[in-house]
């Protein structure tokens, strides 16, 4: 019974508790329009988390998302490509993400370099390059079409949230139905066993990183649209937050019970956590402490479960 209850990713419990707290203390906050605004803010994180959960499932990690977001933000806001169409900007973001992801993947899978080091180094290089190009100053404004898209909504669902939900759905179906999804699960379970069963382990890992890179490109577009201006600091803490949300969602290095929706609710929990904390008048430090405590306790419950089975 207890074991069964512990099988549910911690994110669902945290989410339910936070909704309950809101319902009791400020029922007005549960209005879809109000919630939509808060949830829209975490859409970039939510999208980035999709890539993070994929690489974490194959026992890797991607810390380069911050660098990708910064680079894309710079490319769009600096006016380096005057008169560029929206399609070009999108292609640029996805292309950059793909290139970074492929590089990460080849380094991790072929060269067998530690994923923490590779992706960290890529992020350091991108951040340094962008800040150098921008001379440390915010580059400029983002074309208006981004802001317009960001502020669109379908009924009560803001466009960024709709995009996030759609991508989550696609990834869930893809991982659940495709052969590649099985490869991911197999590599996560045991690299050695997967190798002996004929799973193309290296290609699976490279593909996971490449896909995570493309997804980071999408997250970068949404993040850029959300702040509407160029910045030399935007998004740097997102990769680590994405790791945290993934863990909260019941996906850990090599273990994927939380699926794709677990981390989705992990990100939603972070959004609600900020709402509840702000409502209760807890400052920035308090939020950090709570975030840490929640991740730690979720991970401990998770760890306890693995030693039982």
């Amino acid at each position: 019974m207890l074991n069964k209850a512990l099988r549910v990713p911690p994110a669902y419990y945290v989410f339910a508790i936070l909704v309950l707290v809101l319902a009791v203390l400020r029922p007005k906050m549960l209005d879809p329009h109000v919630l939509g605004i808060f949830i829209r803010q975490v859409a970039p994180l939510g999208i980035l988390t999709l890539g993070q959960l994929l690489v974490i499932r194959v026992k890797s990690i991607d810390l380069s998302g911050g660098g990708v977001i910064l680079a894309v933000n710079y490319a769009i806001s600096s006016g380096s490509f005057p008169g560029a169409s929206l399609g070009f900007q999108v292609a640029l973001a996805l292309g950059l993400g793909l290139a970074v992801g492929l590089f990460n993947g080849v380094m991790v899978a072929k060269r067998r370099v530690s994923a923490v080091i590779v992706t960290l180094a890529v992020s350091i290089i991108l951040v340094g390059a962008v800040q150098y190009l921008a001379s440390g100053k915010p580059p400029g404004n983002v074309p208006e079409v981004f802001g317009a898209l960001y502020n669109t909504s379908f009924g009560v669902i803001p466009a960024p949230v709709a995009l996030w939900g759609l991508l989550t759905l696609i990834l869930a179906v893809f991982l659940g139905r495709s052969v590649y999804g099985r490869f991911v699960a197999a590599v996560g379970e045991s690299t050695t066993a997967a190798q002996f069963s004929g799973v193309p382990v290296e290609r699976t890992v490279i593909a996971a990183h490449a896909l995570a890179g493309v997804i980071a490109g999408v997250a970068a577009l949404v993040q850029t649209a959300s702040i509407a201006v160029g910045s030399v600091r935007v998004g740097l803490d997102l990769p680590i937050l994405a790791v945290a949300a993934t863990i909260l969602g019941g996906v850990a290095f090599g273990r994927g019970e939380g699926g794709v929706w677990g981390p989705f609710f992990g990100v939603l929990s972070f959004a609600l956590l900020f709402v509840v904390m702000t409502m209760l008048g807890v400052g920035e430090p308090g939020k950090l402490i709570f975030q840490g405590l929640i991740i730690l306790s979720a991970a401990i419950l998770y760890g306890l479960r693995s030693s039982n089975t």
């Binding site: 290095f253 730690l296 760890g303 693995s306």
Partner: peptide
């Protein structure tokens, strides 16, 4: 608890 060090020390 056999939690991954990255997760623990991040918290």
């Amino acid at each position: 608890f056999r939690v991954h060090p990255i997760i623990v020390t991040l918290s």
